[in-house]
């Protein structure tokens, strides 16, 4: 399983994401310039220039026409995937942390951080409207007594949104009522990432408390827990097999004192149902910040603090392997 190394980011990766078909891989990092790659051979297709700060996250719509990015430069930008043209800029007051496309690809959700005395807020906007019209909905998260949102995604049929917060809380918001309907606190530390499975029925959360947890997306009912001994930065559910892949490792701050061996920067494979770890993939020499599985489940990519994206195509050994039961 020889990986393809994508070496374009000068600083650490923050988010990687496949489009729906899986032929494209989008990546963002602390170096301001998100990129897009052919996932099959790791060739860079282009980049999206314009941000003036760390790009915290990105998302691509279902027909791969638009890309949305959220940046620490206090803007959320909408791009034309094909041309790299900037279509819209949504200016906020503080750094933007979360952005995500709705299922129908017409709406985006984004949040900003609660710094400089400003509250953490969540915005919903229709991308077909002019940015001057302002967001279609705006929720003051801080005012609701909640902590800063660190990740978020759209639920079934665009009826609700789930956000993860920096105190480990998971909140479900109803879109019509624009209010929280469910609140759980499954983690004891910051939620780093939320990802849904392919058919949007399950949700996996990754947390600094060294665990990743699986939930029913509609009820937020806790189903499974995957435990490691290092902070988990990202986790993805395989669309092909009953597996999940976790990425993380010793925190970047402490890495200088840690050898690669004790930092545990491996991607870790767990069985979705039995919660047992059965494989690890080494390679990164810093913690893994983000993980994505190809929509066909036959390859996955990881982006690390070391500034590298590694695309791994699975050997047949993996595809044939299954835990006995």
């Amino acid at each position: 399983m020889k990986p393809i190394l994508l070496q374009a980011h000068e600083r650490s990766l923050t988010k990687i994401r496949y489009n729906r078909e899986g032929d494209l891989l989008f990546s963002s990092g602390k170096d301001k310039i998100p990129s897009v790659w052919y996932s099959i051979n790791g060739e860079r297709l282009g980049s999206y220039n314009g941000h003036n700060g760390t790009v915290w996250t990105l998302d691509v719509n279902w027909d791969s026409t638009s890309l949305v990015t959220a940046s620490a430069d206090s803007t959320v930008r909408l791009w034309d995937v094909q041309t790299g043209r900037e279509r819209n800029v949504y200016q906020l007051d503080t750094p933007c942390r979360v952005c995500a496309f709705s299922y129908d690809g017409n709406r985006i959700l984004y949040t900003n951080d609660d710094v400089m005395g400003k509250p953490c807020e969540m915005y919903l906007t229709d991308i077909r409207a002019s940015p001057n019209e302002g967001p279609s909905a705006r929720i003051n998260i801080s005012q609701k007594g909640l902590r800063k949102a660190t990740s978020g995604l759209w639920g079934t049929l665009d009826e609700f949104i789930v956000t993860g917060h920096d105190n480990g809380e998971l909140v479900q918001w109803d879109i019509k009522a624009m209010d929280e309907v469910r609140k759980e606190k499954p983690h004891s530390a910051q939620i780093m990432d939320l990802q849904a499975n392919k058919d949007l029925t399950f949700l996996i959360s990754s947390s600094k408390d060294c665990t990743a947890k699986l939930f029913d997306i509609e009820t937020l009912e806790h189903v499974k827990t995957y435990t490691t001994e290092r902070p988990v930065n990202s986790a993805a559910i395989s669309p092909l097999k009953d597996h999940v892949i976790l990425g993380g490792g010793q925190e970047a701050i402490e890495v200088t004192q840690t050898s690669v061996q004790t930092g545990k920067f491996e991607a870790r494979f767990f069985h979705l149902i039995f919660e047992e770890e059965f494989a690890r993939v080494k390679g990164h020499f810093g913690p893994i910040n983000t993980i994505a599985i190809h929509p066909d489940g036959k390859s996955y990519a990881s982006g690390g603090e070391d500034g590298l994206v590694r695309i791994h195509y699975f050997d047949n050994d993996y595809l044939d392997y299954d835990i006995a039961y």
Partner: peptide, 13 residues
């Protein structure tokens, strides 16, 4: 059919 780029250009809009 898979198409690959042989040359890439940065286009500034």
């Amino acid at each position: 059919l898979v198409e690959f780029l042989i040359k890439s250009e940065e286009v500034e809009h």
